[in-house]
Design a protein around this nucleic acid. Structure first.
Length: 1050
RNA sequence: GGGUCAGUAGCUCAGUUGGUUAGAGCGCGUGCCUUAUAAGCACGAGGUGGGAGGUUCAAUUCCUCCCUGACCCA
């Protein structure tokens, strides 16, 4: 006996039962432990941050990961899956700042670094339980208990080890660079952080007049363009391109110098007075716009540089070395002072009096107004551009000169590019295109952060006799203990040992030369923590040396495409340098999830999909299936709840009902799959062999796609097979056989086949929809193991028969054609017809057709299939040109050849068939040049599609009509039974009232009808009672009263 | 401004060495089938294959330019 699924099955409920089953039986652990430790498949989990709620986009990434891991497990691999949590970095600090109402760095110091970091530690796992619930509920198998956590001392120690590798190899350096800087964080941001925060901004774009102080052009102004008015108080120079031609013009009563190519910016009429080479302008002095600072170095003159372009502006740019990379570099070249009117917190300094205390961006407008008042503003425009913002604070960044530690990734860029070619990217273009470009344009990794909550940069320093700063990098806790002078003072016992700030800041080291060393104040970019996870998660090299080395690189990782510059890069950058190979071999990138209209999900738009809600309504199976099935995973997905319902109706309901169908009848037949009932595939019925062949072909394709990491294609193959081949053809075709098998062996043949098909479908479904597949598997087996502990069997080539599959495809095509003919001629399928004619062109076709004859006839309710052979004379043959053959042959003449071939007569075609070719109108037509199709059969109702033609005999005689009526009658009774919810086994009695012709026919065939509908007696309806069922048969009214037979004792 | 991807029916998506009727599902209309199925089938409506050029006997497919959207970079 097989257990059935309940009629009002609720998938989310079923899933919860399965979850309990897994837990009780440790199925996940078992699925790993039972495998051979030497046959492993390595997966790395990218650590999420648990201080925010998980969203639907986390579900897709986790679904992708889980599918591949489960698939590999079912292929016999040991797939260990260690979870991880990302705990460091600004996101955490920002959350804490919010909760404390802190807005700047100085407030943190006031609050106390110890307390602040404690708060961070507390906040990290604010939503841990939500994450764990989601993980478990969606069926994502990952080992949460052994999760690595980036703030643990061991984790930090491994990061230090890695940092020291960079330091010792001299690829870590302290530099002074213009960096994107968040004034609220008061910290520079790495380029991959900047990448996350571009926002469209409307900014002023202004043309400013700089008055020339002396020399030939004394009464003229330089016309200068800028989009950052707030940098003007820090201006110390101008720059022109020495290669451009500049002009002195007169417009109104003013004279300007600007680039000749940029004259279009002049709004009024003008007259060119003189052309000047850019290089001639060098060193011309001008009057400063503001006088806030007294400068010691020479300033306020024209410099030259190639970075000045013709794209916008006037060809003259203003230079503020503190706030731009080009500016800074030219400042170095000319030894310009670095003026900083705006300080690190984004506010104007005291000295810049009218603007003192103002935010840099907000000061733009006042500066504009002041320039206008002093007559220095030529014109003002507003323009929209995308400007980098802090990805957490959502506030504009400043470009700001700060000192910072870097990893010189540019020094091994070529290696990274080379290693990238070894990685199997899915989709491929992301690797070659997006990631590849990123590597090509690689910049040094800005590693340090002037923050609190992060892995401390393990660098200590002292000043030597020559006044030089000497740095030393610490690579392990042991080294720290050894070199520290006050270790026990700072960390009196084990419980106080914490490598974070501010404790670590108090540790002093003793240098080899006997000097006391102090730690630098910075922490590191938390992307480094994440990118170090391959070895860090095992506390390598301090522990698990062998294990790590054999489990590196990863066979597989997967994340969203937003990780291209994030995790994918940091893994690659660290691994390329330290281990001299890529960190992962295969990866799947998934796209963003947008709402159903293609808009980004955001709280403000209220279009955010809550994953917990989806899991509650539809369940994990449907959600998972939808996410990978509906569109390729790497594409942006337009999430439409409606489509989840479709997945349920189509795939899951079909699968479940196919299963239920099998269970109902196998229990009725007392069938149990096993030795006693097993029949070799070779001995099974043709249609059973067919579905087994199809099954194996499907498995082959399915495995191919998944081995190729194409989950979507695999899911679609499974979907089509289950619905089209199994449910809509195999099961539907065989319902009668299941109910009333011809023989014992026929019964076993069909039931064995069905059982095997169901098990195999369940197995293929298992990685994608792990719950329902588990339930079906458990019900069909002894119920003690798990589908996830089972393994795939390879497709069996011996049972695949292309011939058989083609034959069935032919049968299906013929059936569709006959149905179409019936519809067009208003002939219901219930009305039997005499015969069907199918022309064949050769012996092979004829044999195929004979094999599938019965299937066709039964399906379309026709008595006889007549095969008409090609040479019988009644078929009209037609030639259809084969362009692949005639195209290259005739080139421009192809149209003529086409006409010629289409016009070939029946006899001409037969001649080519016999002789192989024909010469006509200068063309030599051979058999390859066309396909023969049968166009028409004289005197018949013909239907054709592609190269199949059928003809249907639609004449009805008394016998056929009688049979039709009987079928109609049976149909009415069955409909009634179904609509009245009679049990399949209920026996009934029928009373009826209709015209004499129909009555007679029914009476005469009472036995046959009764057997079909489980009826005990058919009598005439005497009284017209109320609860009768009025219907019609072939437009004749028929009144029926159908009741359950009363059994004795009732 | 640059890069990657995408643009095919109202919606979601298929479609490869370039080959002549561009498909499916959902939705819509009509009819049909069926006691496993909220399923299925047939017919119909719905397409200038984003636009413009080019290569070719032949372009949804290859090339160029442009437009739109998403993501990324500057």
């Amino acid at each position: 006996m097989y257990k059935n699924l309940s009629d009002n099955l609720k998938l989310p409920e079923l899933e919860k039962q399965v979850l309990d089953y897994w837990k009780e039986n440790n199925v996940f652990e078992e699925s790993i432990n039972q495998k051979n430790p030497n046959k492993y498949y390595t997966f790395y989990e990218g650590p999420p941050t648990a201080n925010g709620l998980p969203g639907i986009h986390h579900v897709i990434a986790r679904t992708v990961k889980d599918i591949i891991c489960r698939y590999k497990t079912m292929n016999g691999f040991r797939v260990e899956r260690k979870a991880g949590w990302d705990t460091h970095g600004l996101p955490v600090e920002v959350e804490v700042e919010k909760s404390l109402g802190i807005k700047s760095k100085s407030e943190i110091i006031e609050f106390g670094a110890v307390e602040f970091n404690n708060k961070c530690k507390e906040s990290i796992f604010k939503y841990l339980s939500e994450w764990e619930i989601l993980t478990e509920r969606m069926g994502y198998w990952v080992n949460l208990e052994s999760a690595y956590v980036t703030f643990h001392n061991e984790y930090i120690e491994s990061v230090w080890w890695a940092l020291k590798k960079f330091f010792d190899a001299n690829v870590m350096y302290k530099g002074f660079k213009i960096q994107p800087f968040c004034p609220i964080c008061e910290s520079p941001l790495s380029s991959h952080e900047v990448a996350q925060g571009y926002v469209d901004l409307k900014d002023p774009s202004i043309y400013v007049k700089f008055k020339i102080k002396s020399g030939k052009y004394i009464n003229s102004d330089f016309l200068v363009w800028t989009t950052t008015p707030w940098t003007l108080p820090s201006n110390v120079a101008l720059a022109v391109n020495p290669k451009f031609t500049y002009v002195l013009i007169k417009t109104g009563n003013e004279q300007f110098i600007l680039c000749k190519e940029r004259l279009s910016v002049i709004k009024d009429e003008y007259e060119v007075i003189e052309e000047i080479n850019g290089s001639e302008l060098e060193m011309i002095e001008y009057e400063p716009l503001f006088n806030f600072f007294t400068l010691e170095k020479k300033s306020y003159y024209v410099t030259v540089g190639d970075f000045v372009t013709l794209e916008d502006g006037t060809g003259i740019v203003h230079i503020a070395p503190a706030y731009g990379e080009d500016d800074y570099n030219i400042g170095l070249k000319y030894d310009l002072p670095v003026l900083q009117a705006v300080s690190k917190n984004g506010l104007f300094r005291e000295e810049a009096k009218p603007y003192a205390g103002k935010n840099f961006k907000e000061a733009d407008i006042s500066i504009l107004e002041d320039l206008k008042k002093s007559g220095r503003l030529y014109k003002k425009e507003m323009f929209t551009h995308s400007y980098p913002h802090c990805w957490r604070h959502k506030k504009p960044l400043m470009y700001y000169a700060t000192d910072s530690w870097f990893i010189k990734t540019t020094s091994y860029k070529d290696k990274m590019i080379e290693f990238n070619k070894m990685i199997n990217w899915n989709p491929e273009e992301f690797g070659t295109g997006r990631f590849g470009n990123w590597l090509e344009e690689n910049k040094d990794w800005a590693l340090s952060r002037n923050r609190f909550w992060g892995t401390p940069l393990p660098i200590w320093y002292y000043e030597n006799e020559d006044g030089e700063i000497v740095y030393e990098c610490i690579g392990s806790i042991e080294e720290l203990k050894k070199k520290a002078v006050n270790f026990n003072e700072i960390y009196p016992d084990d419980s106080s040992f914490d490598l974070h700030k501010p404790y670590i800041d108090n540790i002093k080291l003793l240098s080899e030369t006997g000097k006391e060393m102090t730690r630098v104040p910075e922490v590191i970019d938390c992307w480094f923590d994440r990118g170090a996870m391959p070895f860090d998660q095992y506390h390598y090299p301090f522990e698990n040396k062998d294990y790590f080395e054999s489990h590196f690189p990863a066979d597989f990782i997967a994340e969203g495409l937003d990780q291209t510059r994030g995790w994918f890069y940091s893994l690659h950058a660290i691994s390329s340098f330290i281990f001299d190979k890529p960190a992962y071999k295969n990866l799947i990138v998934n796209g963003l999830i947008l709402d159903k209209d293609g808009k980004k999900m955001s709280k403000s738009l209220g279009n955010v999909v809550n994953p917990f809600e989806m899991l509650e309504i539809y369940g994990a199976d449907i959600l998972r299936f939808y996410l990978v099935f509906s569109s390729p995973v790497w594409k942006s997905k337009l999430f439409n709840i409606k489509d989840l319902g479709e997945i349920k109706n189509k795939f899951f309901d079909t699968l479940i009902n196919t299963y239920k169908f099998f269970v109902i009848y196998s229990n009725m037949m007392d069938f149990n799959y096993g030795k006693d009932t097993f029949i070799d595939v070779e001995k099974r019925a043709e249609i059973d062999k067919w579905i087994i062949s199809k099954l194996n072909t499907t498995k082959k394709l399915f495995f191919e796609e998944l081995d190729n990491y194409d989950i979507t294609k695999a899911a679609r193959i499974l979907y089509d097979f289950t619905i089209d081949e199994v449910s809509n053809w195999y099961v539907r075709r065989n319902r009668k056989r299941f109910r009333t098998p011809e023989s014992e062996s026929d019964k076993f043949s069909s039931y064995c086949t069905m059982y095997e098909v169901l098990i195999e479908i369940a197995k293929m479904t298992a990685p994608i929809a792990p719950f329902i597949s588990e339930k079906i598997f458990l019900n069909l087996t002894d119920g003690k193991s798990s589908i996830h502990l089972s393994e795939f069997t390879s497709p069996d080539d011996k049972v695949i028969s292309e011939e058989l599959e083609n034959q069935m495809a032919l049968a299906q095509k013929i059936v569709y054609l006959v149905r179409a003919t019936r519809v067009k001629n208003n002939l219901k399928v219930r009305q039997p017809l005499r015969q069907l004619l199918v022309p064949v062109l050769n012996e092979e076709e004829k044999l195929s057709l004979l094999k599938i004859k019965d299937i066709i006839l039964e399906e379309i309710n026709v008595k006889e299939l007549k095969i008409v052979e090609g040479d019988s004379g009644i078929i009209k043959k037609k030639a259809k040109p084969n362009f692949k053959s005639i195209g290259p042959k005739y080139g421009k003449e192809v149209k003529k050849a086409q006409a010629l071939i289409t016009g070939l007569s029946n006899t001409e075609i037969m001649k080519i068939e016999l002789e192989g070719l024909i010469d006509k109108d200068g063309f030599r037509i051979t058999l390859d040049d066309f396909e023969i199709i049968t166009e028409d059969i004289e005197g018949w109702l013909v239907e054709k599609s592609e190269n199949i033609t059928i003809a249907l005999d639609t004449k009805l005689d008394d016998e056929l009509i009688t049979e039709g009526i009987i079928r109609e009658f049976i149909n009415r009774i069955q409909n009634y039974r179904k609509n009245s919810n009679f049990d399949v086994n209920d026996r009934i009695t029928i009373e009826m009232k209709t015209d004499t012709k129909i009555s007679e026919i029914i009476k005469n065939h009472e036995k046959l009808i009764s057997a079909e509908v489980f009826c005990d007696s058919i009598n005439e309806l005497k009284n017209s009672e109320n609860d009768v069922y009025i219907t019609d048969i072939n437009e004749t009214e028929c009144i029926l009263k159908i009741s359950k037979t009363k059994t004795k004792g009732e």
